[in-house]
């Protein structure tokens, strides 16, 4: 397979990278580990004539309990004992991404921004040409829900749900400077599989920041997929909770792998604060989450099944988070 020709830029500072992206407006992509971008490029999906490699920018590196640089490799995060101790859910999720060989290059920034996926999108040029292209690349219709002018491609990153329940923030650099926003605000809940981010064109993810408060939360991540390796999540549930004398002190829940963005369910979890979480309450929560999600048929497993698993996985994630908290 071949890549279409492009120019490769190698800035050494965030400002330089952002400046390049600004100058090349709309004709460029950032490349971090490349494990998501390059397969898409080889399939000639939305290729651009300029790539800006983030490899040489020292500011995008570095790991501590408070900050993880966007260019930190998943494999390094996975094997970081200190991070794993404090954020077990993060270690769960990172270790479930793709395969060890992919994690060796793949970065946390790339994972948060991983392209949304769909059976009708992640295909070669030939395949797509034979069906007729779709909204998300080169075409004007959707093959999943043809009656709508909307893209249902699924957000399939494993790390975002956990970082969401840890209240992580992301540092974003753009032509007009830096901003720090809650991770949830990175994703466009009003958009679709195409307009999925709130980043302005050319904006760069610099780092993930973990608030002090995240350290006591025992998060867990449960991933549904066909095989224990390779497969993208068909559903990913992250839960973080704190218990106080058997009562919920705080609880956060996020789901990925189902909709076009990873979604937090504060409206369902907030009312549980102060409650002793009975099995019935857990079941109620799990069912409520399930009712809010509508998977479509654009991945390997059937949508009904994925939806049904939401309930099971939410229950299990809560049980595990609770156990973790009791340790």
């Amino acid at each position: 397979m071949h890549l279409d020709p492009f120019e490769l830029h190698r800035p050494t500072t965030v400002e330089e990278a952002v400046g390049l992206a600004h100058d090349l407006a709309g004709r460029t992509d950032f490349v971090a580990g490349g494990t998501d971008l390059l397969p898409n490029y080889k399939m000639h999906l939305n290729v651009r004539p300029h790539l800006i490699a983030l490899e040489d920018i020292p500011e995008l590196r570095g790991r501590s309990l408070a900050r993880i640089g966007a260019m930190e490799r998943l494999a390094d995060i996975e094997s970081d004992a200190a991070l794993a101790r404090v954020y077990p859910g993060l270690a769960d999720a990172v270790g479930e991404v793709a395969t060890p060989l992919v994690r060796s290059s793949g970065t946390v920034g790339g994972n948060l921004l991983v392209e949304t996926r769909c059976f009708f999108f992640n295909q070669s040029l030939f395949w797509r040409s034979s069906l007729g292209y779709c909204l998300k690349a080169d075409g004007d219709k959707c093959h999943v829900v043809p009656q709508k002018e909307r893209c249902y491609a699924t957000f399939s990153g494993d790390v975002a749900p956990v970082l969401l329940v840890l209240d992580a923030e992301v540092e974003v650099a753009g032509p007009s400077g830096r901003r720090r926003i809650p991770l949830a605000a990175l994703y466009d809940a009003t958009g679709d599989g195409i307009r999925r981010l709130t980043l302005a064109p050319g904006e760069l993810l610099v780092a993930v920041h973990l608030p002090e408060g995240a350290r006591g939360r025992r998060a867990r991540y449960k991933k549904l997929r066909v095989r224990p390796s390779y497969d993208f999540p068909e559903l990913g549930v992250a839960v973080a909770g704190r218990w106080d004398a058997g009562r919920v002190a705080s609880m956060h829940l996020a789901v990925g792998g189902v909709e076009t963005y990873p979604r937090r369910f504060d409206e369902l979890t907030a009312p549980l604060e102060g409650c002793a979480l009975s099995d019935t309450a857990v079941r109620g929560l799990a069912e409520a989450v399930m009712r809010k999600l509508r998977p479509v048929h654009n991945t390997f497993l059937l949508p009904d099944y994925r939806r049904r698993m939401v309930e099971v996985y939410v229950r299990r994630a809560i049980a595990e988070a609770r156990e973790g908290a009791a340790e």
């Binding site: 059976f119 295909q123 070669s124 066909v226 095989r227 390779y230 497969d231 390997f300």
Partner: peptide, 8 residues
């Protein structure tokens, strides 16, 4: 699913 990712 003509790929080793989706052929399980």
């Amino acid at each position: 699913n003509p790929s080793l990712l989706e052929y399980k």
